[in-house]
Nucleic acid binder design. Structure first.
Lengths: 261, 261
DNA sequence: GCAGTGCATTACTCCGACAAATAGACTTGT
DNA sequence: ACAAGTCTATTTGTCGGAGTAATGCACTGC
């Protein structure tokens, strides 16, 4: 006989709506993972405002129908990402946006969960326009034959499938991932991966909004061509052009979305 | 009467060596904070190797002389930074470096805690050489009069005190912080702040190694001058020059250090 | 008016028990 | 002999409760 005094089964049923079901395995996504996502998204999207103080641990844990320990672990993960800070007497408060680790993959995911914020999209593209050409340029002068071959295969796969299929998106992801590897810089690799994750979300958003108006293969092909030729300047230029087009598409999707909520 | 069965006081005394004393207040730096730092540094510096599996929660908690709950909170914070992953039966293992969030301020701090890794320093400078000129350029065309004034004051303070004083380093920090603010891009702001933190650690390292061979004021002055003139290209060029000099100094300090451990 | 003190509130730490997932050994059927 | 399903031991996950430590704030005394 379990001692389950207050009804763990009933509790599990009540919190079933948080999206635990559709979770990748082994990523700590059970009760705590769901709570982290729930709170993280509410904070990043502004439902819980900056400088706002969360109710006490006991109260919040009860409201979410979880134990205090689990709630604390969730809060500590948010604290590790710079979203909140806890101290005795004052409680747990949402930190100023400048303290947020905006380059954390989870934070970006939460930021793009709903309707993307136009300012953030703009800032992100501005950053991409600085970083990604540099990455492509470095990849052009450092790539190994194996990486070149992998990028060719990924591009071929993109040509075969469309971006509307899961395989197509996978190939796009692979293309950029190999390029990141090829630039042989761990820091840029980390940054590029975060950005890539964010881009994937905006791509998904563009798809939700209304189809793909543009074939991404030509842009990617010209980037690859420059990398094959070990031409740093050409690679940078090609990547800038790719970004210009992507930004135009995103802006279109965003304004379409704005005009018809 | 407290029930303190196994001697909390004795435990606190035993773990006194972890550096809890010299901690900033209110940042969660008590027992858990010390453990996070301890484990984080051991992982990032390679004392605990990639793909290595940590001993079980109970065993590790006992070894560190802390409760299982506190240890779990610490591990969850490391997991939030992409350093480790836990799953039942398998245990907690160190993730591959590509999963690490190298742009997290804490991770960078741990990376630069001991002797800086030459590869990381190189990668970081390569990244700075891409990002920081862009930041300076944007700041040049977006700065407000207030920000201009603040940067002037910070530079003046740098001129008055040296970088060997706490006030001087503070002024340097302030200078770069205001510039980040002036570029009016939240994502670049986050990135710049992380980089700035890392730079502060290398600066401290340069100081430990053997004094400052160069006066940083002229470089900063020319950056500020370009920003005052709203000249984007000049600001980018000035920042590139500043970075070139800083990199040279760091390389010198690093090779000095290598030749005399 | 101001410095020092006490109190109430909040997070922090600890403990022990049970639940759930799962890698690996084992069993079974063909 | 081999494949597929089953069982078990191990590890993290979750829970509840109790005492500890820090600290903002009101109060007191000068």
């Amino acid at each position: 006989m379990t001692r389950d005094g207050s009804g763990n089964a009933a509790r599990a049923a009540r919190r079933g709506g948080l999206g635990i079901s559709d979770a990748p395995r082994g990523s700590g996504r059970r009760v705590r993972g769901a709570v982290v996502d729930y709170l993280g998204e509410r904070i990043v999207t502004g439902k819980i405002g900056v400088a706002e103080t969360l109710p006490g641990e006991i109260e919040t844990a009860e409201r979410l129908d979880i134990s205090r320990g689990t709630y604390r672990e969730a809060v500590k993960m948010l604290a590790a990402k710079g979203l909140v800070e806890s101290r005795p007497k004052t409680g747990t408060r949402v930190l100023d946006r400048v303290r947020w680790n905006l380059l954390d993959p989870d934070v970006l995911r939460w930021a793009f969960a709903g309707r993307p914020d136009a300012c953030l999209v703009r800032d992100l593209f501005e950053m991409r326009m600085v970083v990604e050409p540099a990455i492509a340029g470095l990849a052009a002068i450092r790539r190994t034959p194996d990486q070149l071959e992998a990028m060719r295969k990924a591009l071929e796969q993109m040509r075969a499938k469309s971006l509307e299929t899961e395989e197509g998106r996978m190939a796009d992801r692979e293309f950029h991932e190999v390029m990141l590897d090829a630039c042989a810089n761990e820091v840029m690799n980390t940054l590029g991966a975060s950005i890539g994750a964010a881009v994937a979300y905006t791509t998904l958003f563009k798809q939700r909004t209304g189809g793909f108006p543009r074939d991404p293969v030509p842009d990617h092909a010209s980037v690859l061509e420059a990398i094959e030729a070990s031409d740093q300047n050409a690679a940078e230029a090609a990547m800038r052009e790719l970004l210009r087009l992507a930004q135009a598409d995103t802006q279109d999707a965003l304004s379409d979305y704005a005009s018809s909520p």
